[in-house]
Amino acid sequence: MHPVLQTVLGRLGLGLATLFVVSLIIFSAIEMLPGDFGQAILGQAATEETVAAFRRELGLDEPPYVRYLQWVGGAIQGDLGTSFSGRNASGTDRSREVIDLIAPRLWNTLFLASVTAIIAVPVSLFLGITSALYRNSVYDRTINTTTLTTISFPEFFVAYILILLLASLYPIFPSLANVDASTPLSERLYRSALPAFTLTLVIVAHMMRMTRAAIINLLASPYIQMARLSGASQTEVILKHALPNAWAPIATVIAFNLAYLVVGVVVVEVVFVYPGVGQLMVDAVTSRDIPVVQGCALIFAVTYILLNLIADIIGIITNPRLLHPK
């Protein structure tokens, strides 16, 4: 088998194994709940029968591995169980399917993350590469100190500064980003402007610094000096000698930061009351609505693992040592 294929398959297998263990951990969340949680959810007035019925519905009578298989089987088909909220002591059940709660919000979150990524990735690659090329110049130092400051800011600090300036003092954008399925695209973009801007500022700082470090590392390679000494111009050095070897580190940087974006989304969604998965998850954690927490966590984890997997695979298929084995 070709070494590239072999390595990629190996990496895919590792990704699957990780996914399996992660799903096991998330699943076991419900196992770790204290014994009387049924009472806590249904309220003090709940009778023993309603609690017992609730436990039966969750399948807590079945052995754990059966329930795990059912849970995973359901998750693959898009069934993440039923929310805890909406139940009460009398046994009436107005709870909703977790997937119905998540699906519209997932779309919103992906929209926000994509808008951010479309702006942030090119900007930070440009800043990172140029500051690496003009290392130690005033330009580089300014960018470096600015981004070092920005990465130290909590997301909500950046968010509220933007609200203060662009929503309160100079009301250009709305401070609340309430969108729903019927919002037209232009309106959606307008309302998501501040959250997207906040995320962009935070991500660009991180991504730019990592890109800069990766490029500087690359430019220090002896073969770059060799290329200069064979008369290659600056452009040629970068395009022909640095770039072919830069895909792997750059892919890693982008994937890492997109994964970071997934997490940063949680706080930003709460600040701007943006109806996304992050906000849903925080609400679920506050009300200890475990099935919803599990569903959200699973989605975040899968995205995260997937992004890292893609970066690794890009690294593998651009590695000349693997592409051209001995």
Binding site: S221, P222, Y223, Q225, M226, A227, R228, L229, S230, G231, A232, S233, Q234, K240, H241, P244, N245, P320, R321
Partner: peptide, 26 residues
């Protein structure tokens, strides 16, 4: 950029570590 007209043209260089001095991608 003026020196680049000399490098690789009228003067060339052989480095100590050939393994590190060749670009692995070409």
């Amino acid at each position: 950029s003026a020196k680049q007209q000399y490098w690789g043209n009228r003067m060339t260089y052989v480095a100590q570590s050939a393994a590190a001095s060749f670009n692995p991608a070409h």
